[in-house]
Amino acid sequence: MRSKLFVPASRPELFAKALAGAADAVSFDLEDAVEEGAKPAARTELVKLFQGGRAAMHGKLVVVRVNAVETSHFAADLEAIACEAVDVLNLPMVESAATVRDAVSALERIEQRRSLSARIGILANIESARGLRLAAEIATAHPRVMGLQIGFGDLFSPLGIPMGEPFASQAVRFAVRLAAGEAGIAAYDGAYVDIRNPDGFVREAKTAQQMGFAGKSCIHPTQIALANDVFRPSQEEIAHALRVVEAARDALARGVGAFTVDGKLVDGPFITRAEHLVALARRLGLLPD
């Protein structure tokens, strides 16, 4: 998910365009983007969309941000969206491992009842002081957790921290990236709200990319190409990774655990990183299968 485009579930006129666009993932939002009284109708719109199954999703990774587990809307949200067309359940305001496990239990009951063939993953939002403190516990709460996502607005606003404050933003990114790393899952950067400032979006995305984030949320279609470009590995990076993988194959066959490539020492963690980068390049069509 280099790019994940938010789409309000109450705006069905946007669904087809979003699914036909260039975003790696489309995130249909039942939470903040939908007014309280409009939530039932928004669920109905998603039910109609998902009746088309995977074929109607145009190969996109489909995410649904539901309302928080503790809200009165959560159970109805799950009933509406748990189906073969959905890949990931995005949980907002996660503040404990127990919340993740409760969500998974509820999801499993519906999946079993409906005999769904694929398990829906969990993307947990880190967007409160408590959630940030317990991010590693949240990340390791259940094997279904496939990523952590930062919610800067909800995290910073109650603390009186301006959006985009560089020191605070970097501190949060570092903490979330380490928590995700402990679990061996991806970390995703939060949204950039000034859609008229593409340079600012790119600066934030590059900062996140340098810290090992896998992608960034997009709140407007104009941000998609920017995210895709920033989180796409360069030809130089791909070429180096291929050399590392090839050298590792030869070295390990000879019983050598550490070696040099392009004048740099390479051992286990660097080999793993190179293998992941090559796999990403193949998924993006930058290398033959």
Rank of each mutant, 00 (worst) to 15 (best):
H58K: 14
H220G: 08
P269H: 04
E108S: 13
F156H: 11
L265V: 04
Q51A: 15
A42W: 13
I161S: 10
R177F: 08
G21W: 05
H58Y: 04
G151S: 12
S128Y: 03
H142V: 01
V244L: 02
D154S: 15
E182T: 15
A208T: 07
A208K: 12
A180L: 11
E79K: 09
A23E: 11
P92E: 09
F50A: 09
D262G: 00
P92I: 01
G257R: 12
V244E: 02
L30W: 11
L277P: 02
R101P: 06
E275C: 00
E13Q: 15
G131D: 09
F213L: 05
Y192T: 05
V245L: 06
L78Y: 07
D102T: 15
A191M: 11
S117Q: 15
R54G: 00
Q170K: 12
Q149H: 13
R43C: 13
D189Y: 12
E127M: 03
P40K: 09
S157A: 15
A80S: 11
K60H: 14
E275L: 03
I122W: 11
G255C: 02
Q209T: 03
V100Q: 01
V86Y: 07
G151R: 04
I161N: 09
I122Q: 13
V63C: 14
A42L: 13
P221D: 10
V256P: 05
A175V: 10
R2W: 04
V230A: 04
E246Q: 15
L123F: 12
V261M: 01
A16S: 11
G121K: 10
S105P: 03
R54N: 04
A103N: 00
S27K: 14
L14F: 12
M146K: 12
A22Y: 04
L284Y: 14
F152W: 14
T272P: 03
N228P: 07
G268T: 13
V64P: 09
V176Y: 09
R11W: 03
V94K: 00
G190V: 09
A106N: 02
M146Y: 07
L280Q: 14
Q112N: 15
P166R: 13
F174K: 09
A175I: 12
A20G: 11
A38I: 04
K48E: 06
E237P: 00
R243V: 03
I126K: 10
R113H: 07
A55L: 13
E35V: 13
K17L: 01
H220P: 05
V66C: 14
S234F: 01
F231W: 03
A124T: 00
L252E: 08
H73N: 08
G164S: 01
Y188C: 11
G190F: 08
V266L: 02
M1C: 08
D289R: 15
H142G: 02
S217T: 14
S157C: 13
A18M: 04
H276D: 10
V261F: 00
I271Y: 02
L30Q: 09
R2P: 03
D32L: 08
A85D: 02
